[in-house]
Each structure stands twice: as structure tokens, then as C-alpha cells.
């Protein structure tokens, strides 16, 4: 049987050096593909378009690193730890082309992409300044039309099929069957892409998959490659594996408020380490990670 398991470095090398459109699967501070984004930054993938339902720490890092030229999203945060300061500053200074949506209008664009249909009509965005701004920019993903069935006004949300989607999940087998535990807001995002890369906490046997087919939320046929990256969402949480690391999130929230401090953070932790393992070692390794390991009953 052909294995889709590759190293993170190999997977990121498949992305063109300039101009790729990537959908990210994180949500604020949970199941974010942080290790993947670290590697994107190390390999200097530039002029990216990023699409996401609710952005999180990994998106802020990528924008802060100056690699994103366009973002389509519905906002985001570090939950109570702070705002996405690098994204906010890039918007304030006009450094990125930001296309703002509501969460569901983004989610429905991914859903349409995953279904292979051209658009989805919805009432979402009607009357909002997100819609006004998109229409002003003549965004080709948005049209306001009357439905031929009920005659009512709808926003036609164009399907989104990004070049790549990247999500971080708990398990996959080497064929690429993906198990997500907890809520799975990123499934439509994952299924919409031309190529789907999945980083996982653990690669499991196909036998394990066959004993738990109801837990597989993305079957292998959608998946291009899998990389096993334990603690790959650190310092964000992965349900049933580990909690978020409060101190590291506070450190990031603080650093991200100031461009030079952010550059130091990037240099120390991302550019100054050869891979994610070295980064995890640098911030305290197994001693630190043991402190955030999830309780099996609570899942955090």
C-alpha cells in the first residue's frame, strides 16, 4: 500500500515559492497548524493568499512574517490572551488586502468548494459593512441577486477551492484517513482544497481506522499528504492531547504588539530553529510539554 506520510519539510516544499492560495484550519487557539506555518516561514513561501473561517495564532504569525498579500476571513483572536495584532497592524497600515466576511459566509464558501458547486446563496452579510466593502472592491466572490425561486434578495457566495488546505488533527493512518476529536469546524475547509495536507499528533495503523470508521471525518481520498508532528499546534491546544500553554500564549500576545519584539520572537523561535522539534526543545522540551498534557477525562 502506498503511504502518504511525508516529512513536514517535504510537504511544504511542494508549495510554490510565490503566490500560493492556502486555507488554514486553526480557530483562535485550538488545533492550529502552527508547526506547518513555522515551516512555511522557514521556507519563505511568499505572496500568499490565506483563507480561513476564524483566524488564529498561526495566521497572525504568517502575516507578521510578511508572507501574506491577501487574506479572506471573519476576524479572529487569541481568545482572552489577546488580539491578532500583526494582522490588525497590517490592515491598519494597508500592507495586506483584507477581505472581511462573517464566519458562516466563509464556511459556506468552503462548503460550496467541497461540493463542487459554483456558489451558495445565503442571507448572511446583507446590510453589513463587510458586504459594502466587498462590493466596493468589486470582489468577484460576491453578488447580490434575487432568488429565482422565492424572489428574495440573497448574497451569492462563490465557492472557494484554494490550492492547498492545511489542518492539524489528532490522528491519521498512512493512507490519509483523518480522525478529528472534538468539534470539527475545519472539515469543509479541508475538503474544499485542490490539495489537502494534514499534520497529526499521531499516525495510527489502518487497522485502528477500520475498527473506528465512524470517527473518520475526512476519508483518505481527499488527502494528499500526512505529516506526523507531535505537539504540532503548540502553544495552542489539541483536544484530548494537550492544553494551550498559557505562558507561551502570553509571551506571543506581548511580543506581537510590537514589530521589533515580534521580529525577535520570529528569529528566536522560527528562523533560529531548524525544525519544530528543535523549537519545542528550546522552549523547555518534555518538561514543559508534560505540564500541558491533557487529562483523559477532561480532554484538556
Amino acid at each position: 500500500m502506498e503511504s502518504k506520510v511525508k516529512s513536514l519539510r517535504e510537504i511544504v516544499a511542494e508549495i510554490p515559492d510565490e503566490g500560493a492560495h492556502i486555507a488554514l484550519g486553526g480557530f483562535a487557539i485550538t488545533r492550529n497548524p502552527v508547526a506547518f506555518v513555522f515551516e512555511l516561514i522557514r521556507q519563505n513561501k511568499r505572496d500568499l493568499t490565506v483563507s480561513q473561517i476564524v483566524a488564529g495564532l498561526e495566521t497572525d504569525l504568517l502575516v507578521g512574517a510578511g508572507l501574506v498579500k491577501k487574506i479572506q476571513y471573519s476576524g479572529g483572536s487569541l481568545d482572552r490572551f489577546g488580539r491578532l495584532e500583526r494582522i490588525n497592524e497590517a490592515i491598519n497600515k494597508g500592507l495586506i488586502d483584507a477581505r472581511e466576511y462573517s464566519g458562516t459566509s466563509m464556511a459556506l464558501r468552503f462548503l460550496a468548494g467541497s461540493m463542487g458547486i459554483p456558489f451558495i446563496p445565503a442571507k448572511y452579510l446583507l446590510g453589513t459593512d463587510m458586504l459594502n466593502a466587498l462590493l466596493e472592491k468589486k470582489d468577484d466572490a460576491i453578488r447580490v441577486e434575487r432568488s429565482p425561486f422565492d424572489g428574495e434578495r440573497y448574497v451569492y457566495l462563490r465557492a472557494l477551492q484554494p490550492d492547498f488546505a492545511v489542518i492539524h488533527a489528532q490522528y491519521a493512518d498512512e493512507k490519509g484517513n483523518v480522525i478529528i476529536e472534538g468539534p470539527y469546524w475545519d472539515v469543509e475547509t479541508a475538503k474544499s482544497a485542490k490539495k489537502l495536507f494534514v499534520t497529526v499528533e499521531k499516525v495510527v495503523s489502518t487497522e485502528f481506522i477500520k475498527r473506528n470508521p465512524e470517527k473518520v471525518v475526512i476519508p483518505s481520498l481527499y488527502v494528499s499528504a500526512v505529516a506526523e508532528v507531535p505537539f504540532g499546534a503548540f502553544p495552542c491546544s489539541v483536544y484530548r492531547f494537550y492544553d494551550y500553554d498559557k505562558d507561551m500564549l502570553k509571551e506571543y500576545a506581548e511580543a506581537s504588539k510590537d514589530e521589533s519584539k515580534f521580529k525577535e520572537f520570529l528569529q528566536d523561535y522560527v528562523l533560529g530553529t531548524k525544525d519544530f522539534e528543535e523549537f519545542l526543545e528550546k522552549v523547555g522540551g518534555i518538561r514543559r510539554l508534560n505540564k500541558i498534557k491533557a487529562d483523559p477525562v477532561y480532554g484538556y
Binding site: G103, T104, A107, L108, Y184, D186, V187, D243, Y244
Partner: peptide, 29 residues
């Protein structure tokens, strides 16, 4: 109490997990 909806503390003893499409795309719409 957690730090936000992305905090697994808020998910404890849930009856159902779904996606964003499942909640606001379906139940709400």
C-alpha cells in the same frame, strides 16, 4: 470557565460535536 469558545474547557460533557457549517450554517440558517 474557559478563555473563549476555542477552549476545550467549554466543550466538557457536550452532547454533540459538529462543524461551523453544522451550527451556524445549518441550525441557525
Amino acid at each position: 470557565m474557559g478563555v473563549g469558545v476555542a477552549d476545550p474547557r467549554l466543550w466538557y460533557r457536550a452532547e454533540h460535536f459538529t462543524s461551523f457549517v453544522g451550527t451556524l450554517g445549518s441550525i441557525l440558517q
